[in-house]
């Protein structure tokens, strides 16, 4: 029985009188890269927050890996393996680059207060985490910055750091909020090279939000389009690009 990795049904979110997301549903198959696009104010971010658990929707359900997660908190969902990034890359500025990545590892006995009170607990696990942290920093070209404070990184480096950090959690599904915003084209290509590699090597699944329709064409195998809170198109990039409703939404809705 093949169940989709992520199953979203009937998500609705209202702010006062405004319906930001109106009864949206979709599902993601494992190992796919899906783009969620739409003009500004289409409700993409709100939907994204609802799926990742940062906003509680007024209605609808989210299932991940066959289990209902609608009542789970944001961190509870992340623990199951659906992990998100932020539009403005977040970094813990006063921790080193190494610590930024290291702290994200799951199952660290000493990152709980009780565990931390027992000296030497989880030493073995900690050395495994260190090795993996070094590997990730190497992969993302941050190895020589390992001991710098994250606050000293450039914008592009912060983007890479956030990527390394979320991978440290060993996610199955990565939710990327505008991964290309403020990123130069060369870095964008690098990021998506990583995405493709992670998909082919580890079978990871990706959903990312973008507002520019052109940038997603080369990078996704499926495109979801939102306008005014509703899902208006769903298909491969080429089909979606020619969809009259999509053209209308972008020409009529956006400025």
């Amino acid at each position: 029985m093949s169940e989709p990795l992520l199953q979203v049904d009937g998500i609705t979110k209202r702010f006062g009188g405004l319906t930001a997301v109106d009864d949206v549903g979709f599902s993601l198959e494992p190992g796919t890269i899906t783009a969620l696009i739409g003009p500004n104010g289409a409700g993409k971010s709100t939907l994204f927050h609802c799926v990742s658990g940062f906003i509680r929707p007024d209605g609808g359900t989210v299932r991940f890996n066959g289990r209902g997660v609608s009542r789970r908190s944001a961190h509870g969902r992340a623990q199951l393996g659906m992990v998100r990034t932020f539009q403005i890359p977040t970094a813990f500025n006063r921790l080193t680059v190494f610590e930024n990545v290291e702290l994200a590892a799951r199952d660290q006995p000493a990152d709980r207060l009780v565990g931390a009170l027992v000296p030497g607990l989880g030493r073995l696990r900690r050395s495994a985490i260190r090795t993996r942290t070094n590997d990730l920093l190497e992969t993302f070209g941050l190895a020589d910055k390992a001991d710098d404070l994250a606050g000293e990184l450039s914008g592009g480096q912060r983007k890479l750091l956030e990527f390394a950090r979320v991978l440290m959690t060993e996610p199955q599904l990565l939710l990327l909020d505008e991964p290309l915003a403020g990123v130069n084209p060369a870095l964008g290509e690098r990021l998506f090279a990583h995405v493709n590699r992670l998909r082919s090597d580890h079978g990871m699944t990706f959903l990312f939000v973008e507002h520019d329709i052109r940038t997603v064409m080369d990078h996704s195998d499926r495109v979801l389009v939102m306008a005014q809170g509703a899902l208006i198109a769903d298909g491969d990039p080429e089909t979606v690009r020619r969809d009259p409703a999509v053209v209308e939404a972008y020409l009529g809705g956006g400025e």
């Binding site: 944001a74 509870g76 998100r84 813990f92 959690t169």
Partner: peptide
Amino acid sequence: PWGRVLRAVREDDAAVRALG
């Protein structure tokens, strides 16, 4: 590591939650 996460929480609550 506990203290490190605590510092991270103070800097960016949401980013910590996003890491599970």
